[in-house]
């Protein structure tokens, strides 16, 4: 066995375990500078302004794996005005607009890396009690009734978009939320956003149970009708 072959063999052996641990490695090298993958000790108001991206330490209780795999390969903006929106808006002679010069594109991964990272993220379960398991009862919602609550009666459309190109921009688009998010996460977040993301700029509206079920169902169904 010549020296070169031995070196190649050695390199292959070393690369072996690194490949197997790919998801965790990528998470460490590419994600943590903007996202918390462990519960932060500091959940202060100031931290909300300092962090560069949403927390991911409960990603496994938040996202659908298939969506993560797809999105990480082709990351498109979910929050029209970024996070946190106030840092990315500027005045104009009409409404405030997004200051595109402040927005940075999200890291884009290969298919293999996206799958490895998605698998790793799905291991990050939310702390006990953050997401109410089984809270969403899965009943079908009338879309016209859902839209009435979403747009008029509860005012969700002020900040969120239920259809591409319309609605508010300070919150994430919701026509893709059903594909993106787990139903119990949607329910729990609507019920008390600050319980999941302290100090976040979505109000806690003291919604009654039927409202929580209806809005969660509507958002899930939106994804099928308006989402891609």
């Amino acid at each position: 066995m010549n020296l070169r072959l031995m070196a190649a063999l050695g390199a292959a052996l070393m690369a072996g375990p690194a490949l197997a641990a790919g998801g965790a490695e990528i998470l460490k090298s590419q994600c943590v500078s903007c996202h918390a993958v462990e519960k932060p000790a500091n959940t202060s108001f100031e931290r909300l302004w300092e962090r560069k991206g949403p927390d991911l330490y409960y990603a496994g209780s938040k996202f659908n794996k298939a969506w993560l795999e797809k999105w990480l390969q082709n990351p498109e903006r979910i929050r029209p005005a970024g996070e946190l929106y106030s840092r990315h808006v500027k005045g104009s002679d009409k409404e405030d607009v997004v200051d595109e010069s402040t927005m940075t594109p999200h890291v884009k991964l290969s298919k293999a890396d996206a799958e490895a990272v998605a698998a790793e993220l799905m291991k990050l379960a939310a702390p006990e009690g953050m997401v109410e398991k089984g809270a969403f009862k899965g009943e079908k919602v009338s879309m016209s009734m859902g839209a009435m609550f979403f747009n008029k009666l509860r005012g969700c459309a002020a900040c969120h978009s239920a259809k591409a190109g319309t609605g508010g921009a300070s919150g994430p688009e919701l026509y893709t939320a059903g594909e993106r998010l787990q139903s119990d996460y949607i329910y729990s977040y609507i019920k008390n956003p600050q319980k999941i993301d302290p100090h976040v700029w979505m109000p806690t509206l003291n919604l009654a149970e039927p409202d929580l079920q209806r809005l969660t169902g509507y958002i899930l169904q939106l994804s099928a009708s308006e989402g891609k």
């Binding site: 929106y85 808006v89 009409k94 409404e95 405030d96 002020a158 319309t166 700029w201």
Partner: peptide, 27 residues
């Protein structure tokens, strides 16, 4: 000031003039 910039600016605007990023489509 910080609370205003976090919670109010989304609708009431960075210039406090009611023309926030969300105001375009509000009824």
């Amino acid at each position: 000031l910080r609370n205003y910039d976090t919670y109010c600016v989304q609708c009431h605007g960075i210039n406090r003039n009611g023309r926030g990023i969300n105001s375009r489509d509000m009824s």
